Simulated scan of single mutants.
Amino acid sequence: MAVETFATRGYHNASLAEIAERAGLTQAGLLHHFRSKTALLSGVLELRDTSEIERLGPERPRGTAFLDHLVETVRLNSTQEGIVRLYAVLSAESVTEGHPAQQFFRDRYEGLRVLVAEALREACELGDADPDLDVEGVASAVIAVMDGLQVQWLLAPRSVDMAAVTRRVLSALLSDLRPPAAGPGGNGPGGSGPGDTSGPG
């Protein structure tokens, strides 16, 4: 109800009257549960985050397992068009002045950058070494790819395989981050990509 309305109309154009009608409530009944449209928006965003946290389990995966989780999340998103549209619409809207979801998305991106950067370091066995490696920048690139793919997929779902492209980009970025091979003909400490144990094609 609220998810569909926010996803199709955005925050500013969504009305409590329409959301209440879709939910089979009066506007007064809706306001009994959520004191304002802002509170309703917060509830919708918190529900989305709670679902994602539950999928991670009690302890987040580490290294390539976390990167595999990102790919699986993208694959799952391709079956949830309404949720993907909600995120795309509200995250874009949140850059406007005074938007009630701005802090939510600012915190979300900051936290996600930290998680992805940690997973990249773990996957490449980097520790805190080599200040020349911009792991945080690579993490930002990973997130940008995932978000950009969502917009392309929403506009042309038959033309974009979000999970496959995400996996390909992660594999390329990991290859770029990993230290050089141990010796002539040797392999570096990692494989060819997240969850990928195959040799050269």
Rank of each mutant, 00 (worst) to 15 (best):
A28Y: 00
D134L: 04
V89H: 02
Q102E: 10
L45S: 08
S15W: 00
P184T: 10
E93P: 10
L31T: 13
N13G: 02
F34M: 08
A141R: 14
T5C: 04
L170H: 04
R9I: 05
Q103M: 08
S91A: 14
R60T: 14
A23I: 05
A7Y: 07
R9M: 07
G148M: 08
L41P: 05
H99Q: 00
S198H: 07
M162G: 06
L67S: 11
R35P: 12
S94V: 05
P157C: 09
S175Y: 10
A39E: 12
R48P: 06
D128M: 09
S159A: 12
P179Q: 01
L76N: 06
G98V: 07
T50M: 05
R48A: 13
Q80S: 11
P157M: 09
R167M: 03
R106P: 00
S192K: 00
R35M: 01
E21D: 10
A156T: 14
G199E: 05
M146L: 08
D161Y: 04
D49R: 13
C124F: 07
G148D: 08
V71N: 02
Q103C: 01
D68F: 03
V169S: 13
S78V: 02
A163N: 08
E122Q: 14
G111R: 06
H33F: 09
G191S: 11
L70M: 07
L56C: 12
L56E: 13
L120P: 08
F104Y: 15
A117V: 11
